[in-house]
Write a protein that binds this DNA or RNA. Structure first.
Lengths: 178, 178
DNA sequence: GTAGGAAGTCAACAGTCGTTGGCCTACAAT
DNA sequence: ATTGTAGGCCAACGACTGTTGACTTCCTAC
């Protein structure tokens, strides 16, 4: 088949995101990604140069944290993260990969420091303890994703969005305000 | 050098635990493990048959959850898990591996269902909601380990054991009792 | 209509991996 | 002194990986 350069690049990127999210960095083969995109592996190299650069492109994403009223920030954050995890493969890519790949771990730290922490500073007006608060929130939100989407603990998978929000909101709210 | 069969097996197993904990399943090469143990890769195969069996032996471990008074279970659990993470490499092996290896994920689910859930049933006397409670506790404890030992978020690494216990205990306690 | 470049294919490279089988070597029992 | 055996080493296998370069095919601009 014959496609435009931009189209092909997009198709490869979509396939790469899926594979990285499902299998992690090492198991997501360039050959497998190329097969998903119905394309020769050499095309992946032509368009992205190297596997690492392809990964960097696939792992690019924005948390898009919304502005929140301080007294409802707990519930708002939990809801927002739950939807992000299900809608955007970027987060699963990073979580699956950050555990065994230092570059991906560094990117998670950057996203945390650049997006979560500023929001917490803004919500609490307490720059000194904001880093601890933010990392506690991250620990609970990441733990949720880990047990629900990666390890698939049955009770976590079975729970509805509303149930999880009800359980986790007070935790996040307390990490913000106590 | 010349060792007894049991000695060599133990040396290999120790090296394997370190490598699996540090690198995860795929990056922990049999050749690298053998080099750490100052031994030929063929010996690993002779003693453990296959890489998967070696991993199964290296990932064997017991949470050793203590009996706890219900009103102090939150603090007790957090303290116990924090020390387990630092003392026993088995947990890091499973966490690093369970994210990209389905067999290891299955083992984490088994440990969760066989060790954490019974304790929660015992503490709460509420068999119906125990699964949700237990998995919520697991999510927070795993999130703690992930952000502190794997992703190494700076504020989490810098926090002392007592600070973390103070922050997380109310969360776990609430997941148990509310 | 033809030249040029872009899209795509193919085969091979060098390296690494788990795994295997044959070989060597030290030691204990005879 | 000889033999049996168990611990250990070496070299190689087949499979798979990221990556490369030459080749073909098609569309477009002149």
């Amino acid at each position: 088949m014959r496609r435009s350069s931009a189209e092909t690049k997009a198709v490869i990127l979509a396939a790469a995101r899926e594979r990285f999210a499902a299998d992690g960095y090492d198991k997501a083969t360039i050959r497998a990604i190329a097969a998903d995109a119905r394309i020769d592996p050499a095309m992946v190299m032509r368009y992205f140069g190297t596997k690492e650069k392809l990964f960097a492109a696939a792992a690019e994403f924005d948390l898009e944290l919304p502005a929140l009223a301080p007294d409802q920030a707990g519930a708002g954050l939990v809801r927002h993260f739950l939807r992000k995890w299900e809608a955007d493969e970027g987060l699963q890519v990073l979580l699956r990969t950050g555990v065994t790949n230092e570059a991906a771990a560094e990117r998670m730290r950057t996203i945390f420091a650049g997006q979560v922490m500023p929001l917490v500073v803004d919500l609490t007006g307490d720059p000194e303890r904001a880093p601890v608060r933010a990392s506690l929130i991250a620990s609970q939100v990441l733990g949720l994703a880990l047990s629900r989407y990666i390890l698939k603990f049955p009770p976590m998978v079975a729970a509805t969005e509303e149930e999880l929000i009800a359980w986790l909101s007070p935790t996040v709210q307390r990490y913000l305000t106590e």
